[in-house]
């Protein structure tokens, strides 16, 4: 099909493959025309900064999606892991660095609980993480009696700080993205994540430690959710009982928007970055152009739907091509 494909067909293919980027460009252009200030460096920087929270968690869940799994508990992990970091900072006196580690560690631990049920007990990821979605939030509410929890004041100065002009959340976001990208493309583990999502039984036959790979992605997803939650808390300074609630869907949407397939085997770390940033861009842009805020979710839904539609179009084109090659097609 490579040599025979016409220019038009190849152009359509490329457009479908780069759909998210194209949508992104169109969205930027549109809001830029609505309000020129929108494309200013300061505003674009703000968008990236605000995307960090969603993006970090989206990168983690992309790994889960790559193996063909799902993690519905990320919103609750954000809450409980940040809370754990808060307790560590307030009661044990660990500093901000200790808080970061506590959030990461608590997130990883919660992810490990998911992994235990999924890998060891063989329960479907959807059910396990649906259960822990309630369990983790419930445990957090039990610890705080659903009251607001105030972090030590040092935290906000960290969350709002900049290093060489780059805000801390952006730095963390970039670090997570680069590490995840390298892990996915340049380590044996990363390649095995893709392999597991392509064919799990085949992975076992090929000698891939299936259980370990699957467990690892849930631990990683938990850790990034914890880190994401903490990064947002660091900018607010307090946490209330509803923190992170329903965010699992934003996170999954960002990953899918970035090209991750819910069937596994397809997706990249940078895709998740783009997906999360695109969602934030739409939010900010709507605020900028003074559009009715209640229209926001509808527009977001429209964009997600468009991206997924394009993805399925691309896949059905591929399927068609693969099946119909018994004989050459005469034109």
């Amino acid at each position: 099909m490579s040599a025979g494909a016409s220019f038009r067909e190849r152009a359509v293919d490329l457009a479908l493959r780069r759909a998210t980027v194209i949508i992104f460009a169109v969205v930027l252009l549109y809001f830029g025309m609505q309000a020129p200030l929108f494309l200013g460096v300061e505003n674009l920087g703000n968008i990236v900064k605000q995307s960090a929270f969603l993006g970090i968690a989206a990168i983690g869940i992309t790994l889960v999606l790559l193996t063909g799994g799902i993690d519905l508990s990320v919103g609750s992990v954000m809450y409980l892991a940040s809370l754990a970091a808060g307790f560590a900072m307030r009661d044990m006196g660990v500093g901000v660095a200790g808080g970061v580690l506590a959030a990461l560690g608590a997130g990883a631990l919660l992810g490990a609980i998911n992994a235990f049920f999924i890998v060891r007990l063989g329960i479907v990821p959807f059910i396990v993480t649906l259960a822990t979605l309630f369990a983790f939030r419930g445990f957090g509410a039990f610890l705080t009696s659903s009251r607001q929890f105030d972090f030590p004041p040092g935290l906000r100065s960290f969350g709002l700080a900049s290093v060489m002009g780059i805000p801390v959340p952006v730095l963390v976001f970039a670090t997570v993205a680069v590490v995840a990208h390298l892990a996915l493309t340049r380590t044996t583990f990363g390649r095995q994540v893709y392999a597991v999502g392509n064919d799990a039984t085949g992975a076992v036959k090929a000698g891939i430690p299936l259980g370990r790979v699957r467990a690892a992605v849930y631990v990683i997803s938990g850790a990034t959710a914890g880190l994401a939650g903490f990064i947002l808390i660091a900018q607010i300074g307090r946490i209330d009982a509803g923190f992170g609630q329903g965010r699992e869907f934003d996170v999954i949407a960002a990953a899918v928007l970035g090209g991750a397939s819910l069937f596994g085997g397809v997706g990249t770390a940078f895709g998740a970055v783009i997906g999360a940033t695109l969602m934030q861009t739409v939010n900010t842009g709507l605020a900028f152009s003074g559009m009715n805020l209640y229209l926001q979710p509808i527009l977001q839904a429209g964009i997600i739907f468009l991206a997924v539609l394009v993805d399925s179009l691309r896949q059905s084109r591929q399927m068609l091509r693969r099946r119909r090659t018994i004989r050459p097609i005469q034109r």
């Binding site: 390649r191 893709y194 392999a195 999502g197 392509n198 090929a206 085997g265």
Partner: peptide
């Protein structure tokens, strides 16, 4: 049936 990962 081959044991290859087609996405890689």
């Amino acid at each position: 049936e081959l044991n290859l990962f087609t996405n890689l």
